[in-house]
Write a protein that binds this DNA or RNA. Structure first.
Lengths: 200, 200
DNA sequence: AAATGATTTAACCATATGGTTAACAAAAAT
DNA sequence: ATTTTTGTTAACCATATGGTTAAATCATTT
């Protein structure tokens, strides 16, 4: 059997480098150095840069997708799911700060790859959640709103700070410590703002 | 004198390629092909890839900065400036859809360059706007809010859709036409949401 | 212990890539 | 008209980069 620790070391190094520098900005040698192994091992275990990148992309996507799937499909009220989503997403991303910008960047830079990837592995499907929104509007719980605009507001408020981390810190003139404190505050702030905007 | 049209052709081609593929993903030859000129001309007019990139980055930044400066420093009420900012920003970015993701990506991928660039050219300074927020809170126009969180909400709601264009379209399952219509709607939707959340 | 198979390494290889140069052409200045 | 400056091109160069290979080492099986 193969030694799992080498493959694991490679993947961890690749995650660290790819997430910070992206596909185009990453050098195989840099991953090898980070993992402290011979460059040939990257190809031995992952065949090519593209394949290794795909493993990293997959891993990142599969970590974020459950959060989106939960708000799309879980059996709870919209209010409850908004609170849960914001809290869990921010907590997760505070520990994995490069994942949002990495995914967004690679999808933007390589639409064809994204298309192929999503066709093969599927994207979370918002239709059930949109149905739920329609029902809660019927029941008089929610104002009449466009569910897609609502989702866009939610994702924007939650993800932008991390996706545009560098720019946000520059424009607001804050250091990383302040940023992290603000993100903790946003766990309450965003649900309040969002829920207030949709409740009857 | 030099023929301005060649230098201009290069810059336009560079803008087109760099904004879509980023510094690391761009090839000088690709810019030359796009501009339909010899690759040596890129170096004749711009010396190096880095310098050409900086010209593109600068051009992008200088187009966005005035919008931010206006909300930070213009002499109008917070409500007025929110409405104006959202409308102008979305209008501008609908025509220049790659600028937000380009700036965000390059700042994230190259923090050192960003640092140097901002030190040399300056970032819009939010302090005066924060002062104005404090005053309007005193006057009972606004609820007590954190001005930085408020700005973050505004920027998030306005910029995220463009910064994460590909992901947004994938997750919401919308085509480009629908996206553009939604962005037009957001010119009214975002100010309503934002202003509602801060007015007394 | 010998044989077999998996893992690791250093040296290579082909190509891509940013950048340069020398010759040439076109304008401008004299 | 001739010299000088500016603009343009094709060929070239050095290095970086993704990827391969043959030999060596290590582990497992028999």
């Amino acid at each position: 059997m193969q030694d799992p620790s080498t493959e694991q070391k490679i993947l961890e190094a690749a995650i660290s480098i790819f997430q910070k520098k992206g596909m185009a900005g990453t050098r195989m040698q840099e991953i090898a150095d980070e993992a402290k192994i011979n460059k040939a091992m990257l190809h031995y275990y992952f065949r090519s840069k593209q394949r290794l990148f795909e493993a990293v992309f997959m891993q990142a996507f599969q970590q974020l997708a459950p959060h989106v799937n939960e708000i799309f499909n879980a059996d709870a009220t919209v209010f409850e799911k908004v609170e849960s989503f914001v809290d869990k997403y921010i907590s997760f991303v505070l520990v994995n700060p490069y994942i949002p910008s990495f995914l967004i960047q690679e999808i933007n830079n390589n639409p064809k790859f994204a298309q192929t990837f999503f066709s093969a592995h599927g994207v979370p499907d918002p239709s059930q959640f949109e149905q739920q929104i329609a029902e809660e509007i019927q029941q008089g719980i929610l104002k009449p709103i466009d569910p897609k605009q609502f989702l866009l507001n939610l994702f924007s408020l939650t993800a932008f700070s991390f996706a545009a981390n560098g720019l946000v810190k520059g424009l607001l003139n804050i250091d990383n410590e302040t940023f992290m404190m603000m993100m903790e505050e946003r766990k309450k702030l965003i649900p309040e703002l969002i829920i207030n905007s949709i409740k009857r």
